[in-house]
Design a protein around this nucleic acid. Structure first.
Length: 603
RNA sequence: GGCGCUGUAGCUCAGUUGGUUAGAGCGCCUGCCUGUCACGCAGGAGGUCGAGGGUUCGAGCCCCUUCAGCGUCGCCA
């Protein structure tokens, strides 16, 4: 048929063929989206990435083509050539961009037949995810996945343009690097040439991007694949992508402004959504006090407050003893909450217990007088007055309170805030509220071992005022910044340490021996000895950002070939055993149950 | 590793207190149909109720074990 195609035939995609081509001879190629056989008139909708074109087959005009059309089924791949014409008046389809015209088929060719797909391709109905993974090529053909992947492309393209315009160089860093004991579990790659030795896949290009600053590249970025062998989640995958950024001689504000501009442009160009800059900035302490988390969801208020003062001298024994024990009473105002029934409050209490609360106290300021989970005798007028003033509660509101150690109380109250906010429909996925969280502690104490560890990583520079390092390390602030969107951390960065002596001091505080430091980070300290510029950067995560932009429930919806919760690729069936010869070549012996003893999931 | 939810036709699901031959919509197959667009109409095929065991006269339903998927906690510098 190609031979028969004259030079005047327009080769065009299904999305591009419009009324502007009325009267022309044209050819479209694509998949059968749907077939409507009316006997002596057959409509075949041809679909490609760009749209759908209705082709019409009339046996009295093109009998061969019409006979072929009768055999077409969903997802067959076809080529149709004919004349473009306006649809008869009244039969236009307003729902699609190409609905004014149709292609009157003269010739048709089946390029490939398709089996009946295991799930519908047109339409975005729910399908079992195992099945979607197994047939990912069909899943990706579906409209919402095509949209998600295209939007991801547009967003990443915008990032590249934006950073290129600002003098950033895109530089690749190695995937085969050295295992270090810090952080997440590494994926290992055995070395054939060095029997018994292993590479690790990078958890991030952190050290390399700092080395690139020492190397004088000044501004670096990379759309970097990172690997972490930790448990999977709806918003986590064993391999994921970051926009890895590093700059020489930056101030914290410069990094922040760069990222704000980048995100604003990405939302504009990929989503046509305007976001306001600069983003609000909170300190870590403020975020914890007002929202109970270091990644606050600013789409709604319900801010936390310390209600301890209202219970000074209370007769309510639980709170009295909590206060005596130095615990805190943290909670928030639930607007209109006085309308909740007893049953609804009980459900809230259950939710709080599920979140780890020891209990939940509630006081409802109802029109006919206060109701409360507290004993009536405990509800003194002063207490009620004090309660309303602390959170600025109004008649008809309720106050929800948990008592615990500061950290636990904030955490539970913060989660309950999200729970109540979600129940009130305040977590609108179409709204995008960014903020920065600053002034993180540099160190924290490991809850299990009691050891001092880096809150983020050991290369983060402490805030100016180094004398603090000589005192209690836990009081030292970090030049660290997190960018947060709707309650999710979407990027984390810092000004780095560039002074080898300071870096050694931090390692010492973390309890590393000189030998450990030399073994793991010797090359970095060596590099710093040759004129390392002050530097810093950030690494926004691509997957979660795109997930939020498209409003998807899972990161897997914006990754072309994701893995399941057990890190399997169900399409290619990875991981898989390898032939014994390969293992021998790698000097490896497998000590695991035979793979046929525990058969893999088959779909 | 813990906990939770789910598993019934190719897909999405219903299935009452344990009781006749397990249903619906979509899809698939056959036929009819000249303006549909998720075309319509008529007919048809299609089931290891995730798997194994148990209780019972009788199990999709109850019990035990197990597998799988997802969610979540631990974990993720």
């Amino acid at each position: 048929m190609t031979e028969n195609t004259t030079s005047t035939t327009l080769h065009i995609t299904c999305g591009d063929l419009t009324a502007a081509h009325d009267g022309r001879t044209a050819m479209v190629q694509g998949w059968v989206n749907s077939a409507r056989d009316h006997g002596d008139l057959i409509f075949i909708d041809v679909r490609d990435r760009f749209g759908v074109t209705q082709t019409v087959f009339d046996p009295s005009i093109a009998p061969e083509a019409a006979a072929l059309a009768k055999t077409l089924r969903s997802e067959d791949v076809i080529r149709v050539e004919g004349r473009v014409r306006r649809r008869p008046a009244g039969t236009e389809n307003q729902k699609i961009a190409t609905g004014e015209i149709e292609l009157a088929a003269m010739q048709a060719l089946v390029l490939n037949r398709s089996l009946t797909p295991p799930f519908p391709i047109h339409g975005d109905g729910d399908v079992d995810e195992t099945l979607r993974m197994r047939y990912r090529y069909l899943d990706l053909r579906r409209p919402h996945m095509q949209r998600n992947i295209a939007l991801r492309h547009r967003a990443v393209k915008t990032v590249r343009d934006y950073l290129d315009e600002r003098g950033f160089l895109e530089i690749e860093t190695p995937m085969l690097i050295k295992q270090t004991p810090e952080g997440a579990r590494d994926f290992l790659v055995p070395s054939r040439l060095h029997p018994g030795e292993f590479y690790a896949l990078p958890q991030s290009p952190q050290l390399f991007k700092q080395i690139l600053m020492v190397a004088g590249f000044h501004r670096y970025f990379q759309i970097a694949r990172c690997f972490r062998d930790e448990a999977s989640r709806a918003d986590r995958q064993p391999e994921f992508t970051q926009i890895d950024i590093e700059m020489a001689f930056p101030t914290q504000d410069q990094v922040i402004e760069l990222v704000e501009g980048m995100l604003a442009r990405v939302f504009d160009e990929a989503l046509d959504v305007q976001i306001a800059t600069p983003f609000p900035r909170l300190t870590y302490a403020d975020a914890m006090a007002k929202y109970g988390v270091d990644k606050p969801d600013l789409r709604f208020g319900l801010e936390l407050a310390d209600y301890g003062a209202a219970f000074e001298g209370t007769e309510f024994k639980i709170f009295a003893s909590a206060i005596a024990a130095g615990k805190r009473i943290i909670g928030f105002v639930d607007p209109g909450g006085a309308a909740r029934s007893r049953r609804e409050f009980d459900a809230l209490v259950e939710s709080a217990l599920g979140l780890g609360a020891k209990g939940l106290a509630w006081i409802a300021f109802a029109d006919d007088g206060p109701r409360s989970s507290l004993p009536k005798s405990a509800l003194t007028p002063q207490m009620l007055d004090s309660l309303t003033r602390i959170g600025n509660a109004k008649p008809g509101d309720a106050v929800l309170l948990v008592a615990d150690d500061l950290v636990a109380a904030q955490s539970v109250a913060g989660q309950l805030r999200l729970h109540v906010g979600a129940a009130k429909g305040l977590r609108d996925p179409k709204r995008f509220e960014f903020c920065w969280v600053l002034d993180f502690p540099l160190f924290e104490r490991d809850a299990e071992t009691g050891a001092i560890t880096s809150m983020h990583h050991p290369f983060t520079a402490p805030a100016p005022g180094l004398e603090a390092l000589d005192g209690d390390p836990l009081t030292v602030r970090a030049q660290h910044y997190d960018v947060v969107l709707n309650g999710s951390e979407i990027g984390s960065g810092s000004i780095r340490i560039h002074d080898p002596e300071l870096q050694r001091r931090v390692f010492r505080i973390l309890g590393y021996t000189d030998e450990q430091v030399h073994d793991r980070f010797g090359f970095l300290l060596d590099a710093f000895a040759y004129g390392a510029p002050p530097h810093g950067g950030i690494a926004p995560g691509v997957d979660r950002l795109i997930q939020m932009m498209v409003g998807a429930d899972s990161i897997r919806e914006v990754i072309a070939f994701p893995k399941n919760q057990r890190f399997q690729d169900l399409m290619i069936e990875a991981p898989a055993p390898v032939p014994p010869e390969l293992l021998r070549e790698l000097s490896l012996r497998v000590d695991a149950p035979r793979s046929d003893a525990a058969p893999k999931a088959k779909v």
